[in-house]
């Protein structure tokens, strides 16, 4: 299960829309061991391609060192597919080199709706996981006495297969 703040999801989608029809890519860093993505880092797609993405190696070195200095790790590594579904391609699986990361895919093939899915990719095996989008803007303590009849502050996008 990936729990991620709605504002970060919106920033990822905005990035993917901005770069469409090229693929967009980036990282969401979070404290080591916490499994919580907190700091969105949009990366350049050095391939500038509609069907391929690749971090610029020098930008990656800088960002990875910065995470190291801040005791962070890449909790989420995301990219967009701009004409196909949000499911890891064989290329994605071949390259997946961060076994601890959530691989998030966004499909921007539909102009009005986005498909956002998350996967673990370890030793070539893809496992889809649910994405739980959290509204951090809603302080659970502040609204406690007003919860009756309200919609929940979190939405589970249940995905098949996991």
């Amino acid at each position: 299960m990936l729990s991620i703040d709605r504002s970060i999801v919106e920033a990822i989608v905005a990035h993917a829309r901005r770069d469409h029809p090229d693929e967009a890519c980036g990282v969401v860093a979070g404290p080591v061991g916490g499994d919580t993505p907190t700091r969105h880092i949009p990366m350049d797609n050095a391939a500038r391609s509609m069907t391929f993405y690749e971090f610029d190696s020098m930008e990656q070195l800088r960002v990875w060192r910065e995470m190291d200095d801040r005791d962070e790790e890449p909790v989420v590594i995301y990219h967009s597919h701009t004409a196909t579904e949000a499911y890891p391609s064989r290329t994605d699986v071949a390259f997946a080199g961060e076994p601890g990361a959530h691989y998030v895919l966004v499909s921007t093939r539909e102009p009005d709706t986005e498909e956002i899915r998350s996967f673990r990719i370890v030793d070539g095996v893809v496992t889809e996981e649910p994405v739980r989008i959290v509204d951090a803007g809603v302080d659970p303590h502040a609204v406690q006495s007003y919860m009756f009849g309200q919609s929940p502050a979190t939405v589970d996008y249940e995905c098949s297969g996991s």
Binding site: M43, T51, F52, Y53, S89, A94, F95
Partner: peptide, 17 residues
């Protein structure tokens, strides 16, 4: 010397890429 996993991928099939 620093080793990092290259971060890359995309919709295109690997053989074609």
């Amino acid at each position: 010397v620093t080793v990092l996993p290259a971060v890359a991928g995309g919709a295109f099939g690997f053989a074609a890429a």
